[in-house]
Nucleic acid binder design. Sequence first.
DNA 1: GCAGAATCTGACCGATCGGTCAAGGTACCT
DNA 2: AGGTACCTTGACCGATCGGTCAGATTCTGC
Lengths: 199, 199
Amino acid sequence: MPTDAHATSRVRPADELRQVALEQFSTVGFAATSLQQIADHAGYSKSSVLYHFASKEALLESAIGPAIDDLEVLLGDFVAGGRSPEARAVFIERFVDFLLGNRLAVHTFVNQGQSLLDIPVIQRANTAIRGIADSICADDATVVENIRFGVALAGAAYMLVAGATFRDEDHQFDDVEVRAALITVLSELLLPADGRSTR
Amino acid sequence: MPTDAHATSRVRPADELRQVALEQFSTVGFAATSLQQIADHAGYSKSSVLYHFASKEALLESAIGPAIDDLEVLLGDFVAGGRSPEARAVFIERFVDFLLGNRLAVHTFVNQGQSLLDIPVIQRANTAIRGIADSICADDATVVENIRFGVALAGAAYMLVAGATFRDEDHQFDDVEVRAALITVLSELLLPADGRSTR
DNA sequence: GCAGAATCTGACCGATCGGTCAAGGTACCT
DNA sequence: AGGTACCTTGACCGATCGGTCAGATTCTGC
């Protein structure tokens, strides 16, 4: 018997499963999310999930892989360009847009990147993050610089998903406001300011 | 038998298990950590773990409960005191010391606080965090203010544990340096600065 | 209409999960 | 020696885990 729960759905099943899985992975955690839960949320059976994706790991890879691709492009462009304050400003804006456009994926590998080190796509993500850190902070960067960078990136990533937990339902932020605020705060942190050295 | 006056006192099993469990919970995740893993790491059997703690949840509660107690005291003192820049500066310093002294517990409920909402001690932690946010940010705080606060706290918490992942083995930070750097960065974010409003 | 590919599903597998229980070990008390 | 309170453990339980597989169903090109 066909279940018309998703019979009329024109969304491709694989995409739908990716989205549901990403929501679970980012909020509940990869290990804590079972294939059965993903299947239930998406309206499929567990077997169907494993038909579209060879394994739970492959599903994770498929869900956050594109975001890592974007991040690597972002990193490449930044490394190719200069490290002037102007270039940094452009990078910050693009980086915030990246965070907003891939918030679930970002939250997943930022929060769980250290516990999933044996998964290839996570290794790719960690490498990219380290690359960005190396690019922003010179080799002779001070501890303060490294802390500043880590606080900025991790804090920004956290605010996009978990931060919503601490807001009332009717006090949720507007994405446009969040974008502007994140750019402001990250600029304060990562751009040279009067009387402060960034390297 | 409570009193053991021998010079070399054995480590109490419950404390040892708490420590091992906390290391696992903070790095691998609560759901992803099995009682068997904890038992193996501590050199006990799974049954012994469940002898000292009624359940996996009770073990979590026992492991991060004291940190939440400290956080609540910290919050209470700050609320009782003023919100002057000087009071904020004192709070920031105490907060950083709290983070350094409870880094594993903090990392656990900051990163997983949203996925463990049904556990009492986690609810307590979330309430405390929200209380701190309300105290630092006035009701009429701008979006930028909220973002700044969230980035600061989440970023700082993340840097203490996960941040170590992105450092080479022989380039680890010194705690004294980290303390000073965190105070610097958090002060930049949360204290009123020239030409910028904090509320 | 029909063949074949694509999709979906329930039954099933070995492993592991959190948790229970009774038996045994050990140290100190009288 | 017995008693007893504390500690540790293996055997065991039902449930669920990720994953396999054969078969039923739907879709598509001819």
